[in-house]
Each structure stands twice: as structure tokens, then as C-alpha cells.
């Protein structure tokens, strides 16, 4: 985890730089019904769907902006705001719910001071509730970036998150 802190600074393109978008538009040029993959790839490149980029995408791919915006706000995968350095996803599938996922979310909220869907002011963490990630036997589950933390207890949440807090992945304490 040590190199994650610096990696993420450059992990996404700047919305003022249209080059990645142009490449994506070219990849799907002429393909029928490619709006969703276009948005997915664009979000992957920029980390989120900035207004400037959305406008350029609509123009470049020949969609009405309203259509692109309508699709982007329909699917939960798409983000219109930048996310924090670490993305925390708390599974709220049935098995996790029965195992107390709500308490996990609450404890994270208490710790970070943000609600579901929000990003901490220091841009370190974004908290999200997600639907079943399909790892029900490990419930309750929280996924931080790519790491799955299963069989969680609310009491252990802070300990896990503190690991991600320091700039170089070091514990802050």
C-alpha cells in the first residue's frame, strides 16, 4: 500500500486535457449505442465525469447533452464529482445487512464525518454504499480501493481505515 499515496495524484487525467477523451471517442466512433461504454471509459480516465468533459463527449459523439446527463445520473456507477484518494465501499447486500452492515456504515460516518456518497474535505476518503458484491460468506464487508475487508466488526473499522489515512500509507497514530 506504500506507494498508493503518490500514485493516485497522477492516476487520473485533468479535465482540461481533452486528449484521453479524444482517444476514447475514436475507439467507439461509429459504434451503435456506445454511450455507456463511452462514459465508463471516460470516467476511468478522468476519475469522474467533469462538466467540461461531458459537454465535449456529447458534442464529439453526437448526443444531446441532456441524453448524456440523463444516462450519467441514472446509473450509480457514474460520478459527477471528483472522489477522494481512497474509495470505501460498504456492501449492503442482504447477507451483509443481516450481519450488521448499517452499523459498519454508521461507524465509518462517525469516524470520517461524512455521509454516504460524500468525500472528506481533505479529499482522502469517499464513502459509498454498494449493493451486494457477491462475497456473502465474508459478510459484513467493506472494500477499500481494491482490498476487501471481510467479517468486519464496527469496533474494528477505525483501525482498518487508519491504515489508509497517512500520506504514505503509514499509520497516523
Amino acid at each position: 500500500m506504500d506507494d498508493k499515496g503518490c500514485e493516485c495524484k497522477q492516476r487520473f487525467a485533468d479535465p482540461d486535457n481533452q486528449e484521453p477523451l479524444l482517444g476514447i471517442l475514436e475507439r467507439y466512433a461509429g459504434e451503435k449505442g456506445a454511450l455507456i461504454p463511452l462514459l465508463q471509459d471516460t470516467q476511468e480516465a478522468y476519475g469522474y465525469l467533469d462538466e467540461k468533459i461531458m459537454r465535449a463527449l456529447a458534442k464529439g459523439a453526437g448526443y444531446q447533452l441532456s441524453q448524456v446527463y440523463g444516462v450519467a445520473t441514472f446509473y450509480t456507477q457514474f460520478r459527477l464529482e471528483p472522489i477522494g484518494e481512497h474509495l470505501i465501499r460498504v456492501c449492503h447486500g442482504t447477507a451483509c445487512h443481516v450481519a450488521g452492515a448499517e452499523l459498519i456504515s454508521e461507524e465509518i460516518s462517525n469516524f470520517l464525518g461524512v455521509k454516504d456518497g460524500q468525500t472528506t474535505p481533505d479529499m482522502k476518503f469517499t464513502l459509498e454504499s454498494v449493493m451486494c458484491v457477491g462475497a456473502c460468506s465474508l459478510s459484513p464487508i467493506m472494500i477499500v480501493d481494491e482490498d476487501t475487508h471481510g467479517k468486519l466488526k464496527p469496533a474494528n473499522v477505525r483501525k482498518v481505515l487508519k491504515k489508509y489515512r497517512g500520506g504514505n500509507g503509514e499509520k497516523e497514530e
Binding site: 462538466e51 444531446q64 441532456s66 441524453q67 446527463y69 441514472f74
Partner: peptide, 28 residues
Amino acid sequence: GVGVYDFVNRGFDSVPGIPYDKPMMESP
């Protein structure tokens, strides 16, 4: 054939909105 509006958001909170809540004058 203009497409000023589309549904924005999903479910109970959807509205036939203009992207980014822009005023109509700034829409097509």
C-alpha cells in the same frame, strides 16, 4: 428534435431536468 430535457436522477428523485440545472436560456 431539440432535446432540452431528459430525466435527471432515478426513481423517486427524478425530474425532467436540464443538465447541470442550467437556466433555459443556456440550454438549446
